[in-house]
Amino acid sequence: MVYLTIGNPPKTIALNFPDSMSKQIENSIFSTIISHESAESQIYYNIDHSNNKLYLQRNGRLTHQNKSSQKIIYALEWQVLKDALNNYKKDYKFHAAGLSYNNNGYLFIGDSGSGKTSISMVLMKLGWKLLSDEFGILNPGSLKLYPFPRNFIIKPHHPVDKDFKSRFVNVAYNTGAQKIPIAYIPLSVFGKVENHPVKLKNVYFLKYSESSTYCITPLGQTAAFANLLKQLYNPQLFKRNSLDHLLNLLNNISFFQLLLHNPFTLETSQKESLSKQLISG
């Protein structure tokens, strides 16, 4: 049995599985928050093995069955992800990477392929801590960013060495239109994880640039507002009474556009300079 604690307020998820699946669970996308210490749990997952098939149950109710342990793990990961996101009901969820440096939080908001995972990996190597490379969870009242750690999901466009990737869990991800190969790489390979909420300082809207270098420009409040709404996973939170929260965010946080080609191709000195500029804004 292992335990995952996530959310605001924290909720614990207990996972029970056959010993034969230990390695896969340890390598699952939640490897960074797996604990072996027993804790009072609100959600229970159980994987049973019987008649050559695996059965996944959530709180006693069968949700998936399959012969492939990989597919059961995949289903489990998505369900746990949903549980975790549901546990941040009053918080804004942005399509963003969240990182911290010296207890200050930074959001990197952008579409798929804009460089959220890449910049997360590069900055972690420079001493930044990761809250999440995909879900920027922000409490609109306190302006605190919450951690949502999970393994990096390395897609084909990420410039990560093939031999390096093969050391980790590699699966095919079905997008609906096609299958793309992905690898789950533990965050610890790149650096440290931030396990505590941190106060947001700057927000960067990532935009792909053809230029091989990078460019940071301050963004006005109206443009920042429009971009924030565009990248909000849960716009239903945006009601009359939350307008003031969003204005609080606009009035207290600095917003920038970060034009970025591929942070991996920057020289070491450029990466360090980028890191410094991002910290100060």
């Binding site: 006005g220 709404l229 945006f238 009359r240």
Partner: peptide, 23 residues
């Protein structure tokens, strides 16, 4: 609802929850 910003403003229509940004 009219909310001024440093470089414009926001108009919010509560019934439809539509937002407009103004320069």
């Amino acid at each position: 609802l009219f909310k001024p910003l440093s470089d414009g403003a926001i108009l919010f229509e509560p019934d439809s929850e539509v937002v407009h940004t103004l320069n």
